[in-house]
Design a protein around this nucleic acid. Structure first.
Lengths: 324, 324
DNA sequence: GGGCAAATGCTCATTTTGAGCATAAATCGG
DNA sequence: CCGATTTATGCTCAAAATGAGCATTTGCCC
């Protein structure tokens, strides 16, 4: 080790997992109850400390998740390491981050799983429970009007015109105003803006009514981790075939589309979606068809693992649209 | 804190910085000398332990970098947290990762800077010094032939046919064989493959000749961090206007292209590149032109910061081509 | 003044999108 | 059995984005 690294201080290091699954209409996240939290924030992510026995960070994470939820993980990727002032403020309340405090790092991971069997006292929750305004499948969420108002008020409340403009720009950028429109990948930026504007309980917000708008809070900074995961997933889905980690071995194109829509929170043009998937060679037909929910039976497809070797960046370059 | 997080063990936590700049033909990385390393591995990244006095990870990083190199950082983003068995093997040699050892985490950051004034005993090095085979601007690097041979030998050396096929697939996927061709973003995957195949000194490779092929090694797992940074940057450049963090306030389209080519390691079709940049509204003309290197004087451009507010994902969707 | 070396301007054939129209094949309520 | 409903599929078409080149400009160098 280098001199520098050898003398490193010894902060606490935790591991946390954002475990996602997708039922047709409801993308889910696996939560566990957390004791000793402020009112209404008793839901959290599976997490635990890094232990000397853990051979790697990822293995440690898998161990914790299995112990706490019984869920064994397949696809896992590192998400982000949280350890900033924000994190500590969120954990300990404002003003707690004096000089010299012990750092508390958390290395967060994103995991994608297929089945959704609930185990122990863990619970699968729709992730839109925590971010209601992120679901545009039924049109623009009504909550956005009120949120927008509050954000505008927050921006206006600043004296310095420079800073006021900056806040206004950020609101437009993340929540979509000036031209740009809504970008479904900016989940984290939106959450952070709400946080800074004091519109979420994690930031010490008072009003109860806010919860209905900005979503259910979580323990510690776990909602921030979830937001980070959603941003990552919504982005990654476009250039890597990660959706299939959430799908059963065989599925119809309709189901695949429903899942993608659930993840991205937006509706897609059906015919174009299937053309895209087809021409990208991401799937291949199987023999069987399925009856399913009303309508003409659909052919069952399976993911072509070979594309991983063929195409440089396979993924579903999602179109936009909002047609049925 | 949760029960789990409160009882976290206390591993060493280091901070490391991959600081990149771009001269026209040579993308650079800022290195510092590291003592006590194996022969030939005396170059490393600016790094230091996380200290209680650091308000945030990023602030701690900035402090270390300034102390060690005098360079102050602008654009900074977290890259990855290293703490796996691989890391420790790389640090301590094979067999050192028994149960119960102390973990050594390193939170690595990517920083992009403009100037390249060398300070203290830090040195700017071309990053292709560490990954010679990543630079395709002058055509397919010759080293790839020899590397390919060695990789193939590594794949063939395995008894189990299943595993042999898997290794072959990975080689094809990362170094481009079957159809797919070279994907410039897979810098990390290529390095990791070389590592596993024992073709880099960090993995305990013996032969001296290898160095000329697979590039100069670094201290600890710093070359892996650099590879991670290059992968990230080569990818990000396509959907975020990060290149401009490396450009001076005013530049010509030719210079911009040279930098992008230097980063991506590939040549681009000039006319299409400028059409792309233009129609994306990423830049705007200034009054002045510049004489520059022979040829007709070029107009100086500047980055339009406004695009950050306008377009959802501005960036340079690089074409491929190899025309002059 | 001719030749060089970029920088710029434009064209053109292909592909890739975005939007719809039309048909097919089950289920469901009489 | 019939028609309405619902989802799956097939196809078409115009607009926009890409990939490759050809042609002109405009300084500098000798």
């Amino acid at each position: 080790m280098s001199e520098a690294e050898r003398t490193a201080s010894a902060p606490q290091v935790g591991l946390a997992a954002v475990i996602l699954a997708a039922t047709l209409d409801d993308p889910r996240v696996l939560t566990v109850p957390v004791a000793g939290q402020p009112e209404g924030r008793g839901e959290g992510l599976p997490a635990g400390p890094l232990e000397p026995a853990h051979p790697t960070l990822e293995r440690g994470l898998r161990a914790w998740v299995e112990r706490q939820t019984g869920q064994s993980l397949g696809y896992v990727e590192q998400l982000y390491t949280f350890g900033d002032r924000n994190r500590r403020r969120s954990d300990e309340g404002p003003g707690a981050e004096g000089e010299g405090g012990q750092h508390a790092l958390s290395v967060a991971y994103l995991a994608l799983v297929r089945e959704a069997r609930p185990a122990a006292d863990s619970v699968w929750q729709s992730w839109y429970r925590y971010f209601p305004y992120e679901d545009w499948r039924a049109g623009r969420p009504a909550a956005l009007d009120a949120i927008g108002d509050r954000l505008d008020a927050w921006a206006e409340a600043v004296r310095d015109p420079e800073e006021r403009r900056r806040r206004g720009d950020r609101i437009g950028l993340t929540f979509g105003a000036a031209g740009s429109g809504w970008n479904e990948e900016r989940v984290l930026e939106r959450y952070e803006l709400l946080f800074e504007a004091g519109l979420v309980p994690e930031a010490g917000a008072e009003g109860e009514d806010i919860r209905g708008l900005a979503g259910q809070p979580m323990a510690f900074d776990h909602r921030r981790m979830l937001a980070t995961a959603l941003s990552r997933l919504r982005g990654k889905i476009k250039y890597r075939p990660v959706v299939f980690e959430l799908m059963p071995p065989a599925f119809t194109l309709g189901q695949l589309q429903r899942v993608v829509e659930a993840l991205s929170g937006a509706l897609l043009h059906k015919q174009n979606f299937r053309r895209l998937v087809a021409q990208q060679g991401l799937v291949e037909e199987t023999e069987s068809v399925t009856a399913e929910t009303g309508g003409r039976p659909a052919r069952l497809m399976r993911f072509r693992r070979e594309v991983l070797l063929e195409r440089p960046a396979p993924g579903l370059r999602l179109p936009s649209s909002r047609t049925g």
